[in-house]
């Protein structure tokens, strides 16, 4: 195998682009939705919160294949949500890269929500009271006090969510369909290679996938100034 074939067959493989696009976009969506949801759920208990909490934790404990199947029913063109999306936005989810995005977003979200929720609950409540006695609005308190003090929880949540998303197979198989060149993610590419008995190919994809995971982990960790112990670049 020459360097050229390595580059053309592997490094330029569409599965890499798809995996990067989908997981990074899912990471942004997980941050934008998981952060407010985690903060909301960390507040005083209410019946609505209990229900939301169960829904948010579901993908963590529900068997992926079963969850994938139910999502297929919901998001399919005859499903409740799938039908609406198709009608309003002309958006087809099943067997497109949108399906893969939905899959990796859903499996990673609970990790983001739980991490944010735990970090917020651990935060000293008197800091928020102090901000109030200093004349700060809820918005100012959120930006200047709460977010900086739960930063580690946010970063840990993103790391866990990414880790889960990048390795996702079951639901992306169900919703994306594992179509070579279109909805085949790196994880699925490894699975396909093993299935076809091409162990060398599977090994190279595994190395690439691992490299992506480690790079994202290091980048996220560098973003958080107050590093998670043992994971800092300095420690390596």
């Amino acid at each position: 195998m020459t360097l050229q074939t390595l580059a053309s067959d592997y490094l330029a493989h569409p599965a890499i682009g798809l995996t990067l696009r989908v997981t990074l976009l899912a990471l942004v969506l997980q941050l934008l939705t998981g952060l407010p949801l985690g903060l909301y759920l960390a507040g005083k208990k209410s019946p609505l919160k209990s229900i939301l909490e169960i829904i948010a934790a579901l993908p963590m404990i529900f068997p992926p294949m079963a969850l994938g199947f139910f999502l297929l029913l919901f998001l399919g063109k005859n499903g409740v949500i799938g039908h609406l999306l198709l009608k309003i936005f002309d958006l087809k989810i099943i067997f497109t890269s949108w399906g893969v995005l939905a899959a990796v977003y859903i499996v990673g979200l609970p990790f983001m929500v739980k991490s944010v929720q735990a970090a917020r609950r651990q935060m000293d409540h008197s800091l928020i009271e102090a901000a109030a006695t200093l004349g700060k609005t809820r918005g100012e308190t959120l930006l200047k006090v709460i977010l900086p003090n739960i930063k580690n929880g946010i970063v840990a949540g993103l790391l866990l969510a990414f880790g889960r998303s990048v390795g996702e197979v079951g639901i992306s198989l169900m919703l994306g369909g594992n179509i070579i060149g279109r909805t085949e993610t790196l994880s699925l590419a490894i699975y396909n290679a093993v299935f076809e008995g091409e162990f060398m190919r599977a090994a190279i994809f595994s190395v690439i996938l691992s490299a992506i995971a480690i790079i994202v982990l290091l980048v996220l960790n560098a973003v958080s100034k107050n590093r998670i112990s043992g994971l800092s670049i300095k420690d390596i």
Partner: peptide
């Protein structure tokens, strides 16, 4: 609301912003 009352409150555990 607390933020509109002009008080200086010193908490037992200081409640300083660690960031």
């Amino acid at each position: 609301p607390a933020r509109k009352r002009k008080v200086g409150f010193v908490f037992q555990d200081y409640a300083l912003f660690p960031n």
